[in-house]
Design a protein around this nucleic acid. Structure first.
Length: 903
DNA sequence: GCTTAGACGTA
DNA sequence: CGTACGTCTAAGCG
């Protein structure tokens, strides 16, 4: 443990840092823009950020041996009781500030810094007491406070750090500095303040007496008592005012006297700085989304402290020099035990490549292989090991490794643990799962720190000529073994082991193959569409310009706002950060009100440029094989869904006729007969029926009737044959909204009806399908109790905000809690189905293959002559993926392109 | 060159 | 004041 944070070294004079928590946090709050410091969940963090940043600077620059923070406990204190106007007239604490103080306390806890507050007492009194106690021990004391009253306890050994500008610049208030600024010694400062008053605390001073006059008097008569004793001698208006305000001045002096004799539960010795709690730091900084600040603090920790006291030092890394041809022996020596596998390369589906590969074992032995100049014997040994289902491997992001190795001609099998997938299952809401971060979090170790010889120093010999990349890669491979074991424990604690081993891990392989296969596109058709949409966009733009008499950038919301609300002075739409929205819903409403032709052209332009943009993005991604290879992201969606990126093939238009033309460009590839799509109909409603056990809803699905018709007939009390289209669509909107936590307000907005009518619709709905309401309530309450929701496969999502004091955050969490089990269970089911489809296709030796997954839909490419068998196995796999209390209905379509294969 | 906001496509 | 995503452009930052 380093001296800095280890507390008293007998030879070193203790240095105590004391901080007025509220006053500094409040300064930070006003110094930093609230909108720039907000988590994705909407929690303001500007005060926390400013405070912690200041704290980090202080610790770094001042190197205190002891640290403590005092907070104000509430608005009533012994001072307000004595003088009710004290600190009166202040504006209410701003809403965005509240709630940040508990977060600051959490950070302090993680840093193991003592913080204290007491009813009726102000932070300054606590600091004054500690300061006085420490001063009497001969310690050096630094007091960080934005309250000028603290200047009274400045001495030769007690310095006040007073914020000048924000919280980044602190003035060192020594006795000389106080005298230079106020003209009196620190011990006389409260006398001066009593005369001058303090507007911030609503303490009136003597009129016409400012710091200069007060200092002059105090110098002349010694102290406040002297001044008051000679009040009669002072001439002029100021003297007259003083005589009239003597009582107020005495009261002021009484109020600004800070207590130094409190009986506190912590003596200065108890405030010794302690090693930080890394785990807690990660937790709170993750929640606050402070990445840089966390890194800054971590960097400040002495190297010896890196591992904390409860952490065993990691085994040193031994990079084995394996002679050409010796890789097989190296592997054999590992005796079939699991190894960490890392690869360097490009993980691009369909055109990946790998140049370096590293293997690491549990004993800290590692080997790095240059794949570009590998010996045939090593190549064979490595290829066999990689492809061996029974040679266990730990990887991080195995699907990407699969693509890299595939590009070099290696098959990858036998992955028994993927640290990225494991971490995702443990923390599905986390945005990234960098190996470096996981290592710090789970093992309290840092990659790069344990390299042989230490790669930290700039003087290291770069023997491999690779900037240390080889050793880092070897270290990454090595760390996978202990990291994998740690995560396996974590998974077991969360009952997620099977989810990894039986679902996500095998699915990664299925996805890798789908990505590698890609989907064929008709490039000529895409180019045609590009040109056509481009022409239509030009036309719409010209028409729009003609209407307003000038050319603006129709793609700029800012410029559009000028046109709509300044130039054309249209009714204002919904407020957004930058003014008023120009989104499609608002523009459509504006058009209904104004019939202004500009809006028509603008909307047409929007539609067609969006389509064109989609087409152009697709064209950019067509590979040399004439196919588009998306990447399915398996660790992104917190509910357990997949997402698709580079390009996103899960948001190809389907709702409009023009949009559907794009789907025609996704075609069956050479050597295949047709595309086949299969989708689950109303899977989320079926899951809702199953999970809620609502008899009415279950019967609706078993009846074989059209779901929305059936539900509408029950809600409106008419025969299924008499349900009007309007009734059906209302019910449809209501049913789908339920799973999202839709409110009567939201429903009314969507249907364009009164809130009262929407409320009645909801009431009628729940009269008939009460089990649904009960279920939705229970889901939220259960999640509040356990801290997480669960899908049918036990996939969890943690929702700490369910118990938040912040209503908005809490309500968002409640809607998430409603939706996650439903959306997540649907994701579970289709994932099971994909595994089954793949298994059956392989088992039967069929050439047909999975291409895409779009949440409730699978797209396959069917080889000649296999259609009937594939359709049957697909229906069986999808329909049998889960045993629910309602049937899983699958509808299948086929055709030469995605549009025609759809339904 | 980077990030953010607004907009909009899908389930 | 309905969930889950990805990606484009414009605009502001350095």
């Amino acid at each position: 443990m380093g001296d800095r944070l280890s507390g008293v070294n007998d030879n070193v004079r203790p240095r105590l840092l004391l901080i007025d928590g509220h006053s500094m946090a409040f300064r930070a709050f006003f110094a930093l823009p609230a909108d720039k410091f907000t988590t994705s969940g909407g929690q303001h963090t500007n005060a926390v950020h400013g405070f912690v940043s200041m704290l980090a600077n202080l610790i770094k620059n001042e190197q205190p041996t002891h640290v403590a923070v005092a907070f104000d406990a509430g608005s009533t204190t012994f001072r307000t009781e004595r003088f009710p106007e004290y600190k009166g007239g202040r504006d209410a604490t701003p809403e965005p500030f509240k709630g940040q103080v508990p977060l600051i306390r959490e950070v302090l806890d993680a840093l193991r810094i003592t913080h204290y507050e007491r009813e009726m007492i102000e932070a300054d009194d606590i600091l004054a007491t500690w300061s006085s106690e420490a001063g009497s021990r001969g310690w050096e004391v630094l007091v960080c406070s934005g309250d000028r009253d603290s200047l009274q306890f400045v001495t030769d050994t007690v310095t006040v750090l007073y914020p000048v500008k924000g919280v980044s610049e602190l003035a060192r208030m020594t006795p000389d500095a106080v005298e230079a600024k106020y003209g009196v010694r620190p011990e006389r400062y409260p006398d001066l303040a009593a005369l001058v008053g303090e507007s911030a605390d609503n303490i009136p001073g003597v009129p016409k007496v400012g710091p200069k006059t007060a200092a002059k008097w105090l110098t002349q008569y010694g102290d406040l008592e002297g001044v008051l004793a000679h009040a009669d001698e002072i001439t002029g208006v100021a003297g007259q005012n003083l005589r009239e305000h003597i009582d107020q001045v005495r009261l002021n002096r009484e109020l600004n006297h800070l207590l130094t004799d409190l009986d506190l539960p912590y003596a200065p010795e108890d405030l010794e700085a302690r090693p930080w709690d890394r785990e807690a730091m990660h937790t709170i900084f993750d929640a606050l989304q402070f990445r840089t600040l966390r890194d800054r603090l971590l960097a400040m920790m002495p190297a010896e402290e890196r591992g904390d006291d409860d952490v065993v030092a990691g085994p040193s890394l031994e990079l084995d020099a394996v002679a050409p041809g010796g890789l097989g022996a190296w592997l054999a020596a590992r005796g079939g035990k699991h190894l960490g596998l890392e690869v360097r390369g490009r993980a691009v589906p369909g055109s990946g490549d790998a140049d370096l590969l590293a293997l690491g074992d549990a004993d800290g032995h590692a080997v790095v292989v240059d794949l570009t100049e590998i010996e045939p014997a090593d190549d064979a040994a490595l290829g066999a090991w990689l492809a061996d289902e029974d040679a266990p491997k730990f990887v991080h992001g195995g699907k990407a490794r699969w693509h890299e190795l595939q590009g070099r001609g290696y098959a990858l099998r036998g992955v028994t643990l993927d640290t990225e997938l494991a971490a995702y299952l443990c923390h599905p809401d986390q945005r990234t799962f960098d190996l470096e971060d996981l290592t710090i979090r789970s093992l309290h170790r840092e990659i790069g720190a344990a390299s042989p010889g230490g790669t930290q120093g700039s003087l290291d010999l770069d023997l491999d000529g690779d900037g240390g990349e080889l050793t880092v890669l070897a270290e990454r491979a090595s760390i996978l073994v202990p990291l994998g074991e740690a995560l396996a424990d974590d998974l077991a604690d969360r009952s997620a082991t099977k989810l990894l081993e039986l679902l996500e891990l095998p699915l990664a392989d299925v996805l890798a193959r789908m990505e590698d296969t890609g989907i064929a596109v008709d490039v000529d058709l895409l180019r045609e569409l590009d040109a056509e949409f481009g022409e239509q966009a030009r036309h719409a733009a010209e028409e729009a310009y003609a209407v307003i008499g000038r050319e603006v950038n129709l793609g700029s919301p800012k410029q559009l706002q000028e046109v709509l609300f300044d130039q054309l002075d249209m009714p204002r739409t919904k407020k957004i950060k930058t003014g008023y929205t120009t989104d499609a819903a608002a523009l459509t409403e504006l058009f209904a009100k104004t019939q202004h032709p500009f809006l028509e052209h603008l909307l047409a332009h929007r539609d067609v440029t969006k389509l064109r943009q989609t087409v152009e993005t697709l064209l950019r991604y067509v590979g040399p094989d004439g196919r588009i290879h998306t990447t399915f992201q398996q660790t992104v969606a917190a509910t357990g869904r997949l997402s698709s990126a580079d390009p996103n093939l899960q948001n190809i238009p389907i709702r409009t006729a023009a949009g559907r033309r794009i789907r025609r460009a996704f075609v069956v590839g050479d050597g295949y007969e047709t595309l086949l799509t299969a989708d689950y109909s109303q899977i989320e409603m079926r899951i809702m029926a199953h999970l809620s056990g609502d008899e009415g809803l279950i019967e609706a699905f078993r009846s074989g009737e059209d779901l929305h018709n059936y539900v509408a007939s029950r809600v409106f009390g008419v025969a299924t044959t008499d349900v009007s289209p309007a009734q059906r669509s209302k019910i449809k909107a209501m049913s789908y909204g339920l799973a999202y936590g839709l409110s009567a307000f939201g429903l009314s907005k969507q249907l364009g009806i009164e809130v009262g009518e929407a409320q009645k619709l909801m009431d009628d709905y729940f009269t008939r399908f009460g089990g649904v309401r009960t279920y939705l309530h229970e889901v939220v309450e259960a999640a509040r109790a356990t801290g997480y929701t669960e899908t049918i496969l036990g996939r969890r999502r943690y929702l700490p905000d369910l118990t938040s004091d912040n209503r908005q955050r809490r309500e968002i969490a409640e809607r998430v809690a409603l939706n996650s089990p439903i959306q997540g269970s649907a994701a579970d089911i289709i994932k099971i189905a994909m595994l089954e489809v793949r298994k059956e296709l392989d088992a039967r030796g069929l050439r047909s293959r999975l291409l895409l997954q779009v949440h409730d839909e699978l797209v396959l490419e069917v080889a000649p002559g296999e259609f009937e068998e594939v359709e049957a196995l697909l229906r069986a796999a999808m329909g049998g993926a889960a045993k629910l209390s309602v049937p899983l209905d699958v509808s299948v379509g086929t055709g030469p392109n995605w549009h025609d294969a759809g339904h």
